[in-house]
């Protein structure tokens, strides 16, 4: 019994230590080239298209990501005409996997790929889903685990829809 408790504490302590502390996260998007789901390479700045942008970090196996998608679709539909751009960034999956998924799910906003976690690591993001709100100049002004009321209020304020 004592040995088991000691072993458990050791394991818990080790994994806790390994996960503790968050690395500093950049406040601007790195300058990288992204692959679109359709295979085309595109600089990230082009993907932003000079717009206030919401970036959704997701994966096909992430059920919480799937729950975010309808909200992002509605957000895109509601504020796309007012200059908001919504893009999805798939994390850690191959183009084939993502394309097969999109074939079934019909996502209306553009999807980009980060199959080797390069951008996710550069952003310092550890969780999925993650919602980033990015200004046209690439500055990350907000990070959230979901599209919530706080995030939506910020987006609206940045679009100058609210005083």
């Amino acid at each position: 019994m004592r040995h088991f408790i000691a072993l458990t504490c050791c394991v818990v302590g080790c994994v806790s230590a390994s996960a503790g502390g968050s690395a500093s996260r950049p406040s601007t998007l790195p300058i990288v080239e992204l692959t679109r789901a359709d295979g085309h390479l595109e600089p990230l700045q082009v993907a932003l298209a000079g717009s206030m942008t919401v970036i959704d970090l997701w994966a096909t196996w992430c059920t919480a990501c799937e729950q975010e998608r309808p909200k992002l679709e509605r957000l895109s539909a509601a504020y796309g005409a007012r200059g908001l751009r919504v893009i999805g960034l798939n994390i850690g999956e191959s183009a084939d996997v993502v394309r097969a998924y999109l074939g079934e799910k019909r996502v209306s906003y553009p999807i980009y790929l980060d199959p080797d976690f390069r951008l996710a690591d550069a952003l310092g993001e550890k969780r999925l889903p993650t919602i980033l709100v990015v200004e046209p100049n690439g500055r990350i002004v907000h990070r959230a685990a979901s599209l919530d009321a706080e995030t939506l209020a910020l987006i609206k304020s940045k679009l100058s829809l609210d005083p």
Partner: peptide
């Protein structure tokens, strides 16, 4: 936990 197609993912 519905999720339609759960495809292969992580390398």
């Amino acid at each position: 936990g519905s999720s339609g197609a759960r495809r292969e993912s992580f390398t």
